[in-house]
Simulated scan of single mutants.
Amino acid sequence: MARSGVLNRVQDLWVSLAGVATSFPSDGVRVVVAAESRLCPPAWAGIVVLGSSGIATAPDAAAARFLRESLTERPLRSAVVAERWSGEHGVVDVLGPASLAYLDEQEFRPATGAADIAQLPPGHPDLDRLVADVSEDDVAESGIDEITSPVFVVRDRARVAAAAGYRQWPRSVAHLCVLTSSHLRGRGLASAVASAAVAEALQNQLLPQWRARPESSRRLARRLGFRELGDQLSIRIAADQVDSNGDSNRSGRGRP
């Protein structure tokens, strides 16, 4: 599939997750009100930039006005830069950004090596010991509890040392989930299990998606052939930024 075809497919995915009628504009960021948006946690605002434009969802009209005012006359990529929002008066929390990377059959570079890969069903008890070996942040980042595909694993003796699979998303997208024991990293185990999961997704005619914040995870994705097409970021806007008339309170809002 041509790169433009992948981008169009990915944009369709994120539009569907917005939960309301919208589209990526020719440039800039289009802001819409979407209380049930899946671009972000409930009651937050979510921003996704792909290619030369982006979409943003806000929980209500006042938050949408706040976003539009904040994004006016700003470079596109600044919309998904955490430091830019951390310095914005009225923003009380930021999640991300996470890079959004994808590949098709022609771009896939399978991992090579002699890892003995086995399969487990999602939620198998052997995965519990792997989860116990890593931090809560790593578990949350991996999404290992959300896998719906077979789980591809490598063992160190009897214990699962690394695991990967995917959760099927709308628009036939496979969201990759990978986790490696903290004590066994740097041995290529993540590459081996992730490669097996990607191959499974492609065999099932799905588009693999790799969403990541840590640079180590992004490097692994690039080794497998993923290309970063954009970024996702969520912000929580303070309630006191809206006055009794529902207008954004801009007094004192600084520019980073």
Rank of each mutant, 00 (worst) to 15 (best):
Leu95Ser: 13
Thr72Asp: 06
Leu103Cys: 07
Glu136Thr: 09
Ser53Cys: 10
Tyr102Asn: 02
Leu103Thr: 02
Tyr102Lys: 00
Ala140Leu: 13
Pro42Gly: 09
Ala98Asp: 10
Asp93Gln: 11
Leu127Ile: 11
Ile117Leu: 03
Asp93Leu: 07
Asp104Arg: 03
Ala64Phe: 07
Ser142Trp: 09
Pro97Gly: 06
Asp145Cys: 05
Gly113Asp: 05
His89Asp: 10
Glu73Cys: 09
Pro59Val: 08
Gly143Gln: 02
Ser99Ala: 15
Gln106Met: 01
Trp44Ser: 08
Ser78Arg: 14
Asp138Glu: 14
Phe66Pro: 01
Ser135Gln: 08
Arg65Asn: 12
Ala82Phe: 12
Ala114Lys: 01
Leu71Gln: 05
Arg129Cys: 01
Ile47Asn: 05
Ala62Tyr: 06
Glu136Pro: 00
Arg68His: 07
Leu95Pro: 00
Leu130His: 03
Gly87Asp: 10
Ala101Trp: 03
Ala79Leu: 08
Leu130Met: 06
Leu76Cys: 13
Gly87Ile: 11
Ala63His: 15
Arg129Asp: 15
Val48Lys: 04
Pro75His: 07
Arg84Tyr: 15
Ala114Asp: 14
Asp145Gln: 12
Leu130Pro: 02
Glu83Gly: 05
Pro122Trp: 10
Tyr102Pro: 00
Val92Tyr: 02
Arg74Gln: 14
Trp85Cys: 08
Asp137Glu: 15
Asp126Trp: 04
Gly113Met: 08
Pro125Asp: 05
Val91Trp: 11
Pro59His: 14
Val48Asn: 05
Gln119Ala: 13
Leu127His: 03
Glu69Thr: 07
Pro42Asp: 10
Gly54Pro: 03
Leu67Ser: 11
Ala61Ile: 09
Ala56His: 11
Arg77Ser: 14
Leu127Thr: 10
Val49Asp: 09
Ser135Pro: 01
Asp104Leu: 00
Ala98Val: 07
Gly87Ser: 14
Glu141Val: 04
Thr57Leu: 06
Gln119Val: 08
Gln106Leu: 06
Asp133Asn: 11
Ser99Pro: 01
Leu67Gln: 07
Ala98Lys: 06
Asp145Thr: 08
Thr72Tyr: 05
Ala114His: 05
Val81Gly: 13
Asp133Thr: 12
Leu67Trp: 08
Ala43Ile: 01
Ile144Thr: 04
Glu105Leu: 02
Ala61Phe: 06
Leu71Trp: 04
Arg74Asp: 04
Val81Phe: 11
Ser53Arg: 04
Ile47Thr: 08
Asp60His: 15
Phe108Asn: 01
Gly51Phe: 12
Val139Ile: 14
Ala61Ser: 13
Gln119Asp: 00
Leu95Arg: 10
Glu136Val: 10
Glu83Ala: 14
Leu50Lys: 07
Ala45Tyr: 05
Asp126Thr: 00
Arg129Val: 07
Asp138Asn: 02
Gly143Arg: 04
Arg74Ser: 12
Asp93Cys: 01
